[in-house]
Design a protein around this nucleic acid. Structure first.
Lengths: 228, 228
DNA sequence: ACCTGAACACCGTTCAAGT
DNA sequence: ACCTGAACACCGTTCAAGT
């Protein structure tokens, strides 16, 4: 024990990257800044990490580290929904988290733990092996796709500082004033298409997924599940 | 008529960006290269476009330009599925297309045309205004999330040139050799989790979505839809 | 109206050299 | 074993200046 404790570890690197991400966003996350954050020069990072890609893999798993496993109570459906909601909340909590996680498949230890637990519940609910594997993949594709859109600015105006609500109102106006003979549906649904209530929108998709999966189970049919 | 035809137009810029994307990928797409492709110096681009973001918006819509509207035949379900499949195929056809499209909400003219048509079919099928709007959003979130994963390398090995099949086999081996007492499900489902058949995986999710949406319609219940 | 040259403040990565 | 200085080949963007 009492090892020389090296100044930089892969863990301290991930923590530093997390802080830079929060401060400057993914576009502003550079090797030089992470190095500075950890009190060292950029070239030194390459002793601990092959390249920036590998640093982003560390960051990816660090983002998942805060995931809390939902309680094991209620129907499989309620647990499935809760998984989706927590995953979204986790990504929303950190700046640009969806962008970091999105194209990154290499699972770190935290990701593995969550996946293991999720598969366990799906199998216990009665899903076959292939279905369970695909269901968990499906859920994460949806959540990541959704939050990716949610975290990216609706327009140049929002990127420049306008609120989501203002941006949505402007987008609605754009749709509403489109030529009504070529775009009758866009005009008619302008408000629905630009509704800024992302919680409702997310929940809609999540319920559809749950319904679709429910149809795979023996006792299938019971779609939207009334009161218990 | 016979205008002086400027050398560079926003359209020629989009076309040039498309070629650079195909050749060098999104990471290799720089203002300097696009400028060279169009026979001009980097600084000149800023006359036609505010910044790189705006160039990427052009590229985004150019990617959608090839979209073909599916034939208006069969059930709403079959048309919905076909929409999903074509959207995926479109993204898969161009290098890094999902990464370009992913966080980009500002819809260009081609995107609007597709959306208009899609909403028309959903409403004709009997979906309410809000449901139609959310259903189309749901489908695009799923497709984008899915293809984003599909187009990104499974591992460093695949990025370095290994085939998808090899990478999948290696990933399966990683899961299978995990400690069986802490990860029993990952070990048991190793093959299912790393199955490289992306078509089946995509189709699975698409069918679940369709089932979930079907449950919203008055004549609901009939989930996976047998032969017509 | 459209394009250029030159510059500014950055990048990721390599590598010999230090300790 | 771990870190640095210096360099290389790039970036996006601005701006005065050209035509």
């Amino acid at each position: 024990m009492a090892e020389p404790t090296p100044a930089v570890t892969r863990q301290s690197l991930a923590a530093a990257a997390l802080r830079v991400l929060e401060r400057d966003g993914l576009a502003g996350l550079s090797m030089r800044k992470v190095a500075a954050e950890v009190g060292v020069r950029a070239a030194s990072l390459y002793w601990h990490v092959r390249n920036k890609e590998e640093l982003l893999d560390l960051l990816n798993d660090a983002l998942i580290a805060d995931a809390e496993i939902p309680p094991r109570e209620g129907s499989w459906r309620e647990q499935f929904l809760e998984y989706g909601r927590r995953h979204r909340a986790l990504l929303l909590a950190r700046r640009d988290a969806a962008k970091v996680v999105a194209g990154r498949l290499a699972p770190g230890p935290h990701t593995l733990a969550v996946l293991e637990d999720q598969l366990d519940r799906l199998r216990a609910a009665g899903f076959g092996d292939a279905d369970a594997a695909m269901a968990s993949y499906l859920l994460s594709a949806y959540v990541q796709g959704f939050v990716l859109q949610e975290q990216s600015p609706l327009s140049a105006a929002e990127a420049a500082g306008a609120s989501r609500g203002e941006a949505a109102r402007a987008a609605g106006e754009t749709f509403r004033t489109l030529p009504g003979d070529t775009y009758p549906n866009l005009v008619a649904l302008a408000d629905d298409l630009t509704d800024p209530d992302m919680n409702t929108r997310f929940e809609f998709g999540l319920q559809r997924l749950a319904d679709g999966l429910a149809a795979l189970l023996p006792q299938g049919g019971t779609a939207s599940g009334g009161p218990s």
